[in-house]
Lab assay of single mutants.
Amino acid sequence: DEWTVEDKVLFEQAFSFHGKSFHRIQQMLPDKTIASLVKYYYSWKKTR
């Protein structure tokens, strides 16, 4: 599952609005599965 720079920026924006409500985040990133969002979240969180 490839994440473009745009995907990553959108994820951060969606996360700032919705927190860990992955269903709502998915509405902003409809091409990503919930599982993909959760997996990305945990790898992204480690870099914070």
Rank of each mutant, 00 (worst) to 15 (best):
Q26M: 09
Q27C: 03
T4R: 06
K32E: 01
V5S: 11
S43G: 12
Q13I: 07
F17Y: 07
W44G: 05
Q27L: 10
L29T: 00
K46P: 02
K39E: 07
T33R: 04
H23L: 14
I25R: 00
E12F: 06
L37G: 01
L29S: 00
K39Y: 12
D7N: 02
F11G: 03
Y40S: 01
K45M: 14
W44R: 08
F22W: 15
D31L: 11
Q27R: 11
T47S: 09
K39G: 13
Y42R: 15
F22C: 01
V9D: 11
K20R: 07
L10N: 12
L29Q: 04
T33Y: 04
S36D: 12
S43W: 10
S21M: 10
T33E: 05
K46H: 15
D31M: 01
Y40E: 10
E2Y: 12
K8A: 06
K45A: 10
T33K: 13
F15N: 08
Y41M: 14
T33D: 10
Q13M: 13
Y41I: 06
Q26N: 09
V9Q: 10
V38H: 04
E6G: 09
V5Q: 12
D1A: 07
Q26S: 02
K32S: 00
G19W: 03
S16V: 10
R24W: 01
L37E: 06
F17V: 13
Q27T: 09
H18M: 01
T4L: 04
R48L: 15
A35E: 15
F15G: 03
T47W: 07
E12C: 02
W44D: 15
E6M: 04
A14T: 06
I34Q: 03
W3Y: 10
V38P: 00
V9R: 12
A14G: 04
Y40G: 00
I34R: 10
W44L: 10
F15W: 05
H23E: 13
I34H: 03
E12Q: 08
Y42I: 13
P30A: 02
M28P: 03
S43F: 07
T33P: 15
Q13L: 04
V38L: 13
T47R: 13
Y40L: 00
Q26Y: 09
S36F: 05
Y40C: 05
S21C: 14
A35S: 13
S21H: 12
H18K: 01
V38T: 11
V5M: 06
K8V: 06
S43P: 02
V9I: 14
V38D: 06
E2K: 15
Y40P: 10
Y40R: 00
P30S: 01
I25D: 08
Q26P: 00
Y40M: 07
D31F: 03
Y41H: 08
K20G: 11
V5A: 13
L29K: 05
F15A: 05
I25C: 01
S43T: 11
V38Y: 14
S43E: 13
H23Q: 11
